[in-house]
Amino acid sequence: MKSGLTISAVGHALFFAWGIISFSVTPLKTEPTESVPVDIISATDFSAMTAGMKTAPKSENQKPLVEKIAPKNEVKDPTPKVAEKKPEIDASAEAPPPPSIPEPKPKPKVAEAKPPEPKAEKLEKKPDPIAEAIKQEKPDDKPKPEKDEAAQKQAQEVPTPQKRPPRPEAKPEPKFDASKVAALLDKRAPQRQAATGDVLNNKPALGTATGTAAALSQSELDALRAQIQQCWNPPAGAADAKDLIVVVKLELNQDGTLTGQPSLANRSSHPFFQVAAESALRAIRRCQPYKLPIAKYETWRSIEVGFDPKELFRG
């Protein structure tokens, strides 16, 4: 027994000596992780976020990404200023008949005077169909030169048709157009909704894809509400009308017409709810197109409108 005990004790002593020597703690190596910068923004900041890209650099003055300049809605001013009308009348009086426009009573001076006097043109617009005719003419001018070029090319080709009869193959020959490279490289869906705005800006800034820098102001919302309320006949005689709030979700085209059917966004067990909802949907359909600022189309493309009978009677 003694020999066993000594062997055991010596063995343990050796084991612990080895342990003390070799039992070294190697600290775990942690790879330094790249920190992700996180900004904390308020809900207001988020809703006012510029439409942009998540990978784009953060710019100081963030402008919304605009791919297409929105067509300006001509504001029909119901109260034209009489004082400013005067010079406009003078201009029309002096006008000699232009030969280019096939109108019996053309006013070319008005058209010529347009660039220096945009205001006059605006004011004059309503009663005068000529300016519109000129306007219609103008976009037509653009394709014309292209047509001419095509005609010239055809003309050049005409003298030598017999020489090269199997020419139809030459048709699909791709012509390299340096100006279309950007369009060819654009991998985005062509059907996408182009971001519209006042000023072209193709430089994306940091933000969300659907961000909207410009939010509808309260007065514009009120204007929309007023437009709808004109057509709204709330169900009369409903008890507990305060619960009779109908929220309708509608999607609008750029011209203010409805894209699809407006849908109810809330439900209620109120017995008159169905009636009220029907009346609200009817009102929305009846009052289109809505007049809203086109520059903020992104904000009102899809919008929810609440119908509260209380508000109607509140005045």
Partner: peptide, 17 residues
Amino acid sequence: LLVASVWVWAIVIDKFF
């Protein structure tokens, strides 16, 4: 436990022999 371990191994060695 250390003492027990030493004792266990002493017994083991002893018994083995």
